[in-house]
Simulated assay, not measured.
Amino acid sequence: MDLSYDPAHIQGKTILITGGAAGFGAAFGARWAAAGATVILGDINTSAGEKVTAQIREESQNQNVHFIKLDVTSWTSQVNFFRQAVELSPHGGIDTVVANAGINDAPEATAFEKPQVDYLNDPSPPAPSFKTLDVNLTGVMYTVHLALFFLPKNPDSSNCKPESPTSEPGRDRHILLLGSVASLHPLMTQTPYTVSKHAVLGLFRCLRISAPLNAGVRVNIVCPYYTDSQFMQAPVRALLAGTPLGKPEDVIEAATYLVADSRCSGRSLVTGPKLKLDASTGKLDVLRDDSGEQIQEGPIWECYLHDMEPADIFTQRMLGLVHVAIKARGWIGWAYDMAGALTWPIRQRWNRSSR
């Protein structure tokens, strides 16, 4: 899809990002600081947050980049985060809130599906851990609740106007949710994470209608497919060997488009591998040029969520994508990816030691 926008519309905005010390949060902050926004990063990891903030300041030559320690599972911490952000904002308000913080605790997921406690005989059996839900769901609900209070109070802002013929710069009222491919179809063995990301999608589906009416706030969501980043561990890479992965830059591009274009309201963008999607048939295919070289297109798709059928269609498309990609790349591509997955921990240690 065409993501035409004016990056100048990001300049001067104040943008809050939870989970901003690493991953997509840090990448969003770097991109938007370079465009002239005031960026306020929140994260529970103080040392990483301060380091990435200093790095973004240096690389962007933008001193309006700040870090505030934030525990998204703590209501008090979130309130303090928003209050301090308003004080740091050059215009005394907030334009965009990005609910990005999220985790996937694999041992927690395993323990949930394979109970080890003797619940019949243990005199005081412990409850299962739901840290993933605490961060990914309760934390997001806290963030969105506070955003719905602070955004309408943004000085010189007005109700969102999706019917505007052109995008407009200036003050904004925008919530950007970070979903996942797990928002649209289940990730087997990752039950808490899937539940949390399904819930974030449900939150979006409610707010995309009510938030513009009640608070003049536009709400959008980005749902990345499996993305080739430092957070994708070796077991997942091995599981996906032979299949294409999404690119972090496409997630950043999709999010930047939604932040920059004030007409975007109730939009749900899915990022994934660059394979051709036929909009008329919904079928995936591999295109080749005259010399036989593969042409890769379409890393960002619009996912319409009026009912559950489009989500089912999306799942079919993703399965089709996997089958097409494996057929196109063959066993050589699978072997290459598997070798990369098996050597990934060694390469990570090498990269850390060489810094």
Score class of each variant (00 low, 15 high):
His145Pro: 08
Ala325Glu: 02
Ala211Ile: 01
Phe28Cys: 00
Val181Ser: 12
Thr76Trp: 11
Ala199Tyr: 08
Asp250Gly: 05
Phe67Glu: 05
Ser47Thr: 14
Val236Cys: 14
Val286Phe: 02
Phe67Trp: 11
Asn121Met: 06
Pro128Tyr: 04
Lys51Pro: 06
Asn136Asp: 12
Ala21Leu: 11
Asp43Lys: 13
Ile56Ser: 06
Cys160Gly: 01
Thr138Ser: 10
Ser158His: 15
Thr271Trp: 08
Ser157Phe: 12
Phe314Pro: 02
Met308Ser: 14
Leu88Trp: 01
Ile15Gly: 09
Leu16Ala: 03
Tyr336Thr: 15
Gly93Asn: 08
Asp71Pro: 14
Arg57Cys: 11
Ser60Gln: 02
Leu319Ser: 01
Asp261Glu: 08
Gly266Gln: 00
Trp301Gln: 11
Met1Gly: 15
Gln63Ala: 12
Val322Ser: 03
Thr227Asp: 07
Glu297Leu: 12
Pro123Arg: 05
Ala21Asn: 03
Ser229Ala: 04
His91Asn: 11
Gln61Glu: 02
Leu287Tyr: 11
Ala22Leu: 08
Ile175Thr: 00
Asn45Ala: 08
Arg347Ala: 12
Leu213Ser: 10
Glu293Met: 15
Asn45Phe: 00
Asp6Lys: 08
Thr46Asn: 15
Ala27Gly: 10
Ile40His: 12
Leu275Val: 13
Arg355Glu: 06
Ala34Tyr: 10
Thr243Pro: 12
Leu240Trp: 08
Asp156His: 13
Lys327Trp: 00
Leu239Thr: 11
Lys274Asn: 15
Arg352Cys: 07
Thr53Val: 06
Gly93Ala: 03
Asp337Phe: 06
Asn121Ile: 06
Gly298Met: 13
Ile44Gln: 07
Thr271Met: 06
Ile175Met: 07
Thr46His: 13
Pro186Tyr: 04
